[in-house]
Nucleic acid binder design. Structure first.
Length: 271
DNA sequence: CCGGACGCCTGTCGGC
DNA sequence: TGCCGACAGGCGTCCG
């Protein structure tokens, strides 16, 4: 579900709402997520203070006492403040804060991740270790992409979604980025010119930055910590617009599966 | 090493 | 109304 703009929006909400809060108690209601939640997770963080909430790729990193809690939202994970003490279906973990509020992790499909590492040691964990460059960092450059793409035949859309190359881009933003860059999603990466990579870098930064500014994209489940929907849905140019007119040229938007995922593009605007 | 298919799990939606 | 298949914002594993 959530890509970088959604995870970053959640991070900002958590950082505002949570920094300095003390966790009175932790309830772990289900351990069988994508990988089992460590047995000792609840006792390790109960009674501790949340000092920061950081993000790496699509992972949220909560610095709590001597530990860092690593959380991935998978397709349907969410962190929200519960308005009442009534649990709803798929509430797997909750923090009762000393000020009376309660923060809940809910994930119907259980593709999410909750695990613990020593404070600040996430970079060497198997989840984080092999991740590629942050797209909003100075290391995300046309040269770096061209070097990684050299000799490869993957479609550019799959390449942009490969978290070992560049992190945070998922199925929605991959289509949006390539539309803005005027490049077809099926183009083989080894044959894209340096100026093509330049377009991709610029488009990626622009799309992600604007999407963060709009609080992300809500298609169905996604909600920010405060329950707000992402407003970038109104600015999607191609995603979920099969057979509707391209906003640039009025030709019908094309759609087909690439890499097993729904992909949208304009066959006139994108080459 | 690379690229592509598949499975994980639950909910929803459209067609019949 | 009910059933059934397809599909959903991610990612790890397996196979050729």
């Amino acid at each position: 579900m959530p890509e970088l703009p959604e995870v970053e929006t959640i991070r900002q909400g958590l950082a505002e709402q949570l920094a300095g809060s003390r966790i009175r108690a932790v309830q772990l209601r289900r351990r069988d997520l994508r990988v089992p939640v460590p047995r000792g997770l609840a006792s390790a963080i109960a009674g501790q203070t949340v000092e920061a909430v950081r993000r790496r790729a699509k992972y949220l990193l909560f610095d709590i006492g001597k530990h860092t809690l690593i959380s991935h939202l998978g397709m349907t994970g969410s962190w929200t403040f519960a308005s009442s003490k009534n649990y709803v279906k798929h509430d797997h973990l909750s923090f009762q804060l000393t000020d009376g509020r309660e923060l809940v992790f809910n994930d119907p499909r259980r593709f999410g991740l909750l695990t613990l590492v020593d404070r600040g040691e996430e970079a060497t964990s198997p989840w984080i270790r092999d991740l590629g460059v942050e797209p909003l960092s100075p290391e995300f450059t046309p040269d770096a992409l061209q070097r990684l793409a050299k000799g490869r035949t993957v479609p550019v859309k799959n390449f942009l979604m490969d978290q070992r190359v560049v992190v945070g881009i998922g199925n929605i933003y991959a289509s949006e980025i390539l539309h803005r860059a005027r490049i077809r999603p099926s183009r083989r990466v080894g044959r894209i010119s340096l100026s093509g990579w330049g377009e991709i870098v610029e488009s990626t930064r622009e799309i992600l930055r604007r999407a963060i500014g709009q609080g992300g994209t809500t298609l169905r489940n996604y909600r920010a910590v405060d329950g707000e929907s992402g407003r970038f849905k109104n600015q999607l140019m191609v995603y979920d617009r099969a057979n509707l007119p391209c906003f640039t040229c009025s030709v019908e938007i094309s759609a087909r599966a690439i890499g097993g995922r729904s992909t949208y593009w304009c066959k006139v605007c994108q080459k």
